[in-house]
Computed example of a mutant assay.
Amino acid sequence: MGELTRGVPSQAVHLCIDMQRIFSREGPWPTPWMERVLPNVAALAGYAPAQTIFTRFIPPHRASDLPGAWARYYEKWREVTRERLDLRLLDLMPELQSFVPPARVLDKMVYSAFANGRLHADLRARQCDALIVSGSETDVCVLSSVLAAVDLGYRVILAADAVCSSSDESHDALIGLYRRRFDIQIEIAGTEAIIERWRT
């Protein structure tokens, strides 16, 4: 699974991407093994809830509310626009809701958690330069957020047993890509190893 070559700093933040009911078995975009990684996500959040930020992927009210390719995307997925969706499916998974507060929730309408600038500003205010990343999906929103964090210079620690995808093939390919092409900027380790090295 990988090892950490150095300790995790006390000001590190656990960034948990889109662990929401919409991506569980009950939602229209199911990630079948979300429930399998959920205990590890909860362990990270429970270890340092005040240093955890949960993101939520929020679709538009209707497809025409977003520009260009996003409008075309939601023309295909009209059932997940907010005018049709059961809005309770946008909630965090029940096992994670009790961590808020002190954990924070950041809503976003695109894949990357960094797209609107609020997350980066929050992390700078915390003097955070290291992120522990968990969540859904390895090959979509996690991918987009991780690469944005790399571009901004963050040390990224991916919790390999706390991320999930709807595609085993894509998940495995992305973990391999992170290891081969981004080994200096992205570290991969298991939840237990991360917690053991995290000095809170």
Rank of each mutant, 00 (worst) to 15 (best):
D161C: 12
W198S: 08
Q97Y: 00
N40F: 01
S64F: 12
P102V: 05
A148D: 15
L96P: 11
E187L: 14
E35H: 06
E79F: 04
E3V: 07
L123C: 10
D161L: 09
Q185W: 07
I58Q: 02
R78M: 02
L87T: 09
G135I: 10
I132W: 02
F54P: 09
S134M: 05
W70K: 06
S98T: 13
P94C: 13
M93F: 00
C141Y: 10
L152F: 14
M93Q: 04
R181A: 15
V41S: 06
R124E: 14
V37Y: 05
V163I: 14
I157V: 15
Q11W: 01
R181F: 14
V133Y: 07
C16R: 00
V8K: 01
I58C: 06
H61L: 15
R124H: 15
D172R: 09
E169S: 04
P30F: 08
D86Q: 03
K108Q: 13
S112N: 08
A43G: 07
C16N: 13
D172P: 00
A130I: 01
F57L: 05
G7H: 02
D129T: 03
L4F: 04
A63V: 14
G135F: 08
Y47F: 14
P67M: 12
I184L: 14
A173F: 07
A148K: 08
L131G: 13
R104M: 13
A48L: 07
R88H: 13
R181V: 13
E169V: 08
T52R: 00
A12V: 12
N40D: 04
V142K: 01
L106W: 04
G176D: 13
I186L: 12
Q51P: 02
Q185F: 11
E79D: 11
V41T: 00
C16L: 06
V110I: 08
V105I: 13
Q51V: 06
R199S: 11
E95D: 02
F114R: 09
T52W: 03
A115W: 12
S170F: 04
C141S: 11
P30K: 02
A148V: 00
Y111H: 09
S10L: 10
D151Q: 14
P94D: 07
M93L: 08
S166A: 04
Q20G: 10
Q51F: 07
A121L: 13
V41P: 01
L44W: 00
R25H: 10
Q20L: 02
R21E: 14
T138K: 01
D129R: 12
V80Q: 11
F99L: 03
A43M: 11
Y111E: 10
L87F: 02
L106A: 05
S145A: 06
M34E: 09
A162R: 01
I132T: 11
E3P: 00
G7Y: 04
V100H: 03
M34T: 13
